[in-house]
Simulated scan of single mutants.
Amino acid sequence: MISGRTVILGVIGDPITHSFSPYLHNGVAATLGLDLCYVPYHVNSDSLQDAVAGLKALGVRGFNVTVPHKEAIMSYLDHCDEVALAMGAVNTVVNRDGQLYGYNTDGKGFLYALSDHHNETIQGKHIVFLGAGGTAKALSYVCLKNQVASLSIINRSLDKASLLQKELLTLNGDVPIHVFSRDDDASLAVLKQADLIINVTSLGLSSDDDLPVVSTDWFRTEQCLVDVIYNPKETQFLLLGREHGLKTINGLAMLAAQAAYAFELFVDRDAPFDEFFSMLADL
């Protein structure tokens, strides 16, 4: 039962109804016997500054940040840790004595999900990101820190992809980083040579969405497709990959892992991976 002592957590985004984060965090809190409540908040871009100020004023202990706010929210926080600053994106905010601290657990969650849950590595691989937003920043940062062979970014807006490329080159000038617009025929050759293709756009949240690529003629059975979307559990992109014999990975394991790392920051205890991953069984 919620009382005046209940710790309030949450997640902000637009859209938000698809989010499994409340189910995961509230379920794990119940399993661990913690008095907390995790609430989803629908916040559009025009309301972001007011929403952050309101959550701070209300004394909410912390909240997660999802699309499209991971970059914009940094302007409204009091502090960001070095990793979040380097990534240029925040997915976790903790309120400590009225000061908002920003972190990013996406990268660690991504690595944990791939290596510990799916037995997939990124070292020495040719990586392609579909999208150039906040999640692309976070995961690209992790890839550059883990000796990938090359990194390519394919995005609807070439200008936005080029800006991300410039930021990433300041972090690691040794790894080749290439950018392409989604409609550029040259992107198909890069996709064909890739080992790991990761969709970090929101295309796939709705059954009416276009694919994040203009063609799938480049599919090879040796490739692995990753989609950070977890609801639906199989996007059209992953479905087509599976039907062509490719290994496919949805965003559920990454969701659970990054949530466990965020939970660690919220409640100041070791990340409860087993509890978060056990919650996936009922999804």
Rank of each mutant, 00 (worst) to 15 (best):
L171F: 10
F266Q: 08
E275A: 14
E120M: 08
V94H: 06
V213D: 12
V28D: 02
F273C: 05
I249P: 06
L205Y: 06
L168T: 06
D195G: 06
N64A: 08
T201N: 04
D217H: 10
G124I: 00
V28R: 00
F63V: 03
A149N: 13
L252C: 11
I249A: 01
R182N: 13
L238Y: 04
L246D: 10
S19V: 02
G107L: 07
P40I: 01
G109H: 03
T221S: 11
C143L: 06
A57Q: 10
D78C: 07
F180A: 08
A271G: 08
L34K: 14
Q258D: 07
K70I: 03
G241E: 03
L85E: 10
S162Y: 09
D208H: 12
D35S: 04
R220A: 11
E234Y: 07
A186I: 02
E264N: 10
G134D: 05
F273P: 14
L188T: 13
V94Y: 10
I16N: 01
T201G: 03
D195K: 03
I197A: 05
I229S: 11
T6S: 14
V65H: 06
Q49A: 14
I16T: 00
D35T: 00
Y112V: 04
L169R: 15
Y230H: 06
G133Y: 01
D270G: 00
D97I: 09
G13V: 01
V213H: 10
A72P: 12
L203Q: 06
A253S: 14
L196V: 12
H118P: 00
F273K: 02
L85Y: 04
